[in-house]
Design a protein around this nucleic acid. Structure first.
Length: 280
DNA sequence: AAGCACTACAACCGCAGTGTC
DNA sequence: CGACACTGCGGTTGTAGTGCT
């Protein structure tokens, strides 16, 4: 048995809200609040709308102190930074911006910031492979830092293959094994260390050997598996390369999204093999 | 002036998490 | 403890507005 629909779709109005509907909803909520039940609210407020629709309209538009459009450069920077750290957790990102909603931030990212970022990256004279996946439900994006782009290591990386169908650069752990540590050092990374074994929490990022130290604040690395690869620092940025099996997710802190690697996998299944995507 | 393309934003949909019975 | 109801979230789609030809 499937889930019962939240409302009768044939009886509710859809589409753009009229000023009258806005006024009805606003008046009702200012008088009575939600009553802890959005589903029953439209009927009480005399609206032919789905409760979810009412909730969205209130939260994204009618609620007091909501700002629309006109994102400042400072807000853009906060979004870049938090997106680098958190990914598309729009509600969390929005909570750092006064008067902004998750929908607003999401739209702003999709319509402006993402394009701005891509323009900035393409102006660094780099070809534009797209994200791809090789027999895996895991995805990983890597955005190389400015200081590493265009260096010989990226232009002649032997461990990557080009998918001629999709024109995407791919990393196949079987046919193109991870580079050796000394090769990775040639990537322009200031600090490189090899990571082994099982990572279980953000605090447990210590089973490593290699060079120097890498700040792991804000990194969350719950995974299991064998030898994983390397973590690297590029100036103020950091990156992780991995190989093996992963369950859970891992992300990389990006102090400055534009100038950093970004790596992420999503928890879509257990013991996924990892594929690598150069996304720049 | 009409038609088309593009952009920005609003709104919807489906799913996951959580609470309640 | 399972079923259901409700909320919140992120991805996607729809639509109005604007600019260009």
């Amino acid at each position: 048995m499937g889930r019962a629909p939240c409302c009768d779709k044939t009886k509710v109005k859809k589409g753009t809200w009229s000023p009258e509907e806005d006024a009805s909803l606003k008046n009702y909520l200012e008088k009575y609040g939600t009553g802890g039940n959005w589903i029953a609210l439209p009927h009480k407020a005399g609206l032919r709308r789905c409760g979810k629709s009412c909730r969205l309209r209130w939260l994204n538009y009618l609620r007091p102190n909501i700002k629309h459009g006109g994102f400042t450069e400072e807000e853009d920077n906060i979004i870049y930074t938090l997106y680098g750290k958190l990914g598309s957790r729009w509600s969390v990102i929005a909570s750092h911006l006064q008067g902004r909603t998750d929908n607003d931030v999401k739209n702003h990212w999709n319509t402006k910031l993402k394009k701005k970022l891509m323009t900035a990256q393409s102006s660094n004279n780099i070809s534009s492979p797209k994200v791809d996946t090789i027999g895996s439900t895991t995805s990983m994006h890597m955005v190389p830092p400015t200081e590493a782009r265009g260096t010989p290591c990226f232009s002649s990386l032997p461990h990557y293959g080009l998918n001629t169908n999709t024109q995407t650069l791919i990393h196949d752990p079987t046919h193109y094994p991870l580079p050796q540590l000394n090769e990775v050092c040639e990537f322009g990374a200031s600090h490189v260390k090899k990571i082994y074994g099982t990572q279980s929490s953000s605090q447990d990022f210590t089973r490593v050997s290699g060079f120097s130290s890498l700040a792991t604040d804000n990194n969350y690395v719950p995974w299991t598996g064998g030898e994983l690869g390397f973590s690297m620092e590029f100036g103020s940025s950091s990156a992780i390369w991995g190989q093996g099996t992963i369950s859970g997710e891992f992300g990389v802190s990006c102090p400055n999204f534009v100038n950093s690697f970004y790596a992420e996998t999503k928890p879509l299944g257990l013991h996924q093999s990892v594929s690598y995507h150069m996304d720049y």
